[in-house]
């Protein structure tokens, strides 16, 4: 079940390799990410998850292999090129400005202008619509500074920012790592809605509870290789852990 069902995937990696000096960070990554689904990328520390998402985000260019976007090979020369395709990466630090309010953060770098001046009203209207679509309702006012938000709300703002930039693929690195139970729930709900809206979501997570709750597909990395990927129904928490820790599973539920 490692390959080939991904024809029609929005993004596909085919045998992607990446080394840093003598360190072979990625030795063979073949991965499909379909639109409208949540694909969880799991793996132990050092397995190569971060290098994989940075490659997709255009921060590293691969040494070998192919990246296909809508089935066509693409060269991601940098973060701008990835963003232009509709790939939006939300790193753990979220990249928000605490002193700016929600609207200002959501539009940072893409401000609406009217007569060359900031068009606050138009931005506020659009931001409100987006948050409403995502049903982010716990913030009291979209004019409050991001500094006053909880971890989950900050995560929501980062996601809304991606949605508003018309992202087709949203990559999230450990979005729930720093969150408590209810905040985690809120973010997972948001991720589901995001995928339900047709966006491809790639979720990097250590937390198997989260993975099994939210993912449609699971992909596991082990020592720089993508060892298995498939629908969540083909995994149990036990097999997933086995893949993560040994790279194979003796009791795989079912081969595709």
């Amino acid at each position: 079940m490692t390959t080939t069902e991904g024809n029609g995937a929005l993004l596909s990696l085919r045998g992607v390799k990446k080394h840093f000096g003598p360190v072979q960070a990625l030795s063979d990554v073949t991965l499909d990410i379909p639109a409208g689904q949540v694909t969880a990328l799991a793996g132990d520390n050092g397995a190569g998850k971060s290098v994989t998402i940075k490659t997709i985000a255009g921060l590293w260019s691969p040494d070998g292999g192919e990246i296909l976007w809508d089935g066509k090979p693409v060269h991601l020369s940098g973060p701008r090129a990835a963003e232009a395709l509709g790939i939006k990466t939300i790193y753990q630090d979220l990249a928000l400005c605490d002193n700016l309010d929600i609207v200002q953060n959501m539009f940072l770098g893409h401000e609406h202008l009217a007569h060359r001046l900031l068009d606050e009203d138009s931005m506020e209207t659009k931001a409100r619509e987006t948050l409403k679509e995502l049903r982010v309702t716990t913030v009291r006012s979209i004019r409050q500074p991001v500094a006053s938000l909880s971890g989950g709300q900050r995560q929501s703002v980062a996601v809304a920012k991606a949605v508003m930039a018309n992202a087709k693929l949203v990559i999230m690195d450990e979005p729930t790592a720093a969150l408590g139970v209810s905040q985690t729930r809120m973010v997972l709900e948001l991720i589901k809605r995001l995928a339900a809206g047709g966006v491809a979501v790639m979720l990097v997570s250590h937390n198997l509870n989260d993975v099994f709750e939210v993912a449609d597909r699971i992909a596991v990395m082990y020592l720089g290789r993508l060892v298995v990927q498939g629908p969540v129904s083909e995994f149990t928490p036990q097999t997933a852990v086995e893949y993560m820790t040994t790279g194979t599973a003796k009791h795989a539920v079912q081969a595709a």
Binding site: P79, R80, D93, A95, L96, C97, D98, N99, L100, Q104, L108, G109, H110, E111, L113, R116, L117, L118
Partner: peptide, 23 residues
């Protein structure tokens, strides 16, 4: 009221976030 002004606040608070926003 201007983009430049907004960016001054963004860079002052979080230059890395500003850079990633294309500023």
């Amino acid at each position: 009221r201007t983009r430049t002004g907004r960016y001054i606040y963004a860079v002052g608070n979080n230059p890395e976030a500003a850079r990633r926003a294309g500023i």
